[in-house]
Simulated scan of single mutants.
Amino acid sequence: MKAECQCGQLTVELPGPTPAVVACHCTACQRRSGSPFGLMAYYPADQLTIGGEVRRYERPTDEGNTFGTFFCPTCGSTVYARAGKHPAMIGVAVGAIADPEFQPPVRSVWEQTMHRWITVPGDVQHFPKGRG
C-alpha cells in the first residue's frame, strides 16, 4: 500500500491494513484537513518508508504535548502526522492512501466539536475529547 500527496512527490509505503484508524473531530484536525474531521491510520514508525521532500508544522495539544503534521512543500497535502505522546507511531492520512476499500475507524475522538450532521457508522469507540 502507498500514501501520497496530490503531486506524488511525498510518499509513504505502508505494510497493509492497521487496527488503529482514528477519526478526530477537533478543530485543529478540521482546519488541517479542510474537512469536518481528520482520519488517520496509525502504524509503528519502523514499518513505514517515507520518500520525498517534506515540511513540518508542529502545534501544542490540550494535554501539553505536541502534534506534528508533515506535508508536501510543492502541493501542500498533509500526508502523515506524529503525536508527541506516541513518538514511535506515525498517523498516515487515510485520504492520502486513496483506497475506497480501506478499513473504517475504530475510534472517534473529540466528538464535542463534531459537526452535528456527522454520523460515525459501525462498532466504534466514541470519546467527547481525546481517548484520555
Rank of each mutant, 00 (worst) to 15 (best):
E4S: 14
E4F: 08
C7L: 12
Q9V: 14
Q9R: 15
L10T: 09
T11K: 15
T11V: 05
V12D: 12
V12I: 13
E13Y: 02
P15H: 04
G16I: 06
G16F: 08
P17M: 01
T18V: 05
T18I: 05
T18Y: 06
V22R: 10
C24A: 05
C24T: 05
C26N: 10
A28V: 08
A28N: 14
C29E: 11
Q30H: 01
R31N: 03
R32S: 14
S33F: 02
G34L: 08
G38K: 03
G38F: 03
L39P: 12
M40A: 14
M40V: 03
A41I: 03
Y43A: 09
D46E: 15
Q47F: 04
R56G: 00
R56V: 12
Y57V: 13
E58F: 01
T66C: 04
F67K: 09
G68K: 10
T69K: 00
C72H: 13
T74D: 13
C75A: 03
G76Q: 02
V79D: 07
R82K: 11
R82V: 11
A83I: 00
A83L: 08
G84V: 09
K85G: 03
K85N: 10
I90N: 08
G91Q: 12
G95A: 15
A98I: 01
P100F: 01
E101T: 13
F102D: 07
F102S: 07
P104F: 02
P105E: 14
V106T: 13
R107A: 09
S108N: 15
M114C: 09
M114I: 00
H115F: 09
I118D: 00
I118A: 00
T119I: 04
T119M: 01
V120D: 06
G122C: 00
D123N: 08
H126Y: 08
P128G: 00
K129R: 11
K129V: 04
R131P: 04
